[in-house]
């Protein structure tokens, strides 16, 4: 059973691909409503970790405990092109009640005008907001964000950061955000983890208040620390 003070509990988790342990003796706990960002170079196990948390993949050993209600926003929107936007939001459900829920969720992400649109007519940012609405409709206790802003242009990304921050404040799910963007991690998260070699090499709280300003002293100190942990030379 999931204890009440943890949304996610991982102990001694291992996952092996073709003889190579991507995760080995991995441990992580996340509190309810905590916003955790995970940084790490490619191949450090970020994606594997996210797939274990989402239930798309199973661990080879250890304990994985996650809430029953989970949602994922992927890097690509992954919308069914043959279904209207609202049908994608409540995929697999029909009827007036489902539609009303979809409309409410789409209104929250600012897409009330696109309820009946076809996915292929949307811009990248709009499609990603539909994916966010689809994740919200599940009323998740754990929201997994797999580099959801990576493919968006810089301006759209800033708006998406605000939107995700607001929605998290309102619904308070635990959030795991996998990203390559150090600034994004510091802007949004309560806690930043750096993964390397299938382990957590750094686990720092981000304790300065919102809204965070990139030019702030705390911000740049933490940015330096994270970048050097990621092996990027900072001058």
């Amino acid at each position: 059973m999931l204890s009440h003070d943890h949304a996610v509990e991982l102990h001694g988790v291992s996952r092996v691909f073709a003889g190579r342990a991507v995760l080995d003796g991995f441990a992580l706990t996340i509190r309810p409503a905590e916003f955790v960002a995970i940084l790490g170079a490619s191949g450090t196990g970020k994606t594997t970790l996210l797939r274990l948390l989402s239930g798309l993949d199973r661990a080879d050993g250890g304990t994985v405990r996650v809430p029953r209600r989970r949602s994922v926003v992927f890097q690509e929107p992954r919308l069914v092109p043959a279904k209207r936007v609202w049908q994608n939001v409540v995929l697999g459900r029909r009827g007036a009640a489902a539609r009303a829920r979809a409309e409410a969720a789409l209104t929250e992400v600012g897409l009330a005008a696109h309820v009946n649109a076809w996915p292929k007519t949307l811009s990248g940012g709009e499609a990603q907001r539909v994916a966010l609405a689809r994740a919200l409709v599940q009323e998740p206790d754990l929201l997994l964000l797999d580099e959801p802003f990576a493919a968006l242009d810089a301006l759209t990304r800033i708006r998406m950061h605000e939107l995700v921050g607001q929605l998290w404040q309102r619904y308070r799910p635990a959030v795991v955000l996998v990203t390559h963007d150090v600034d994004e991690a510091i802007l949004l998260a309560d806690r930043v983890l750096v993964l390397s070699g299938g382990r957590i090499s750094l686990d720092v709280p981000v304790d300065f208040p919102q809204p965070r300003i990139r030019s702030g002293r705390d911000f740049s100190d933490l940015r330096m620390r994270l970048l050097s942990e990621l092996g990027v030379a900072v001058h």
Binding site: S54, S71, F74, E76, R78, L91, G92
Partner: peptide, 12 residues
Amino acid sequence: PKLIEAASIFGL
């Protein structure tokens, strides 16, 4: 397959 994966995430 990514669409099918998404469908399974959302409980289909």
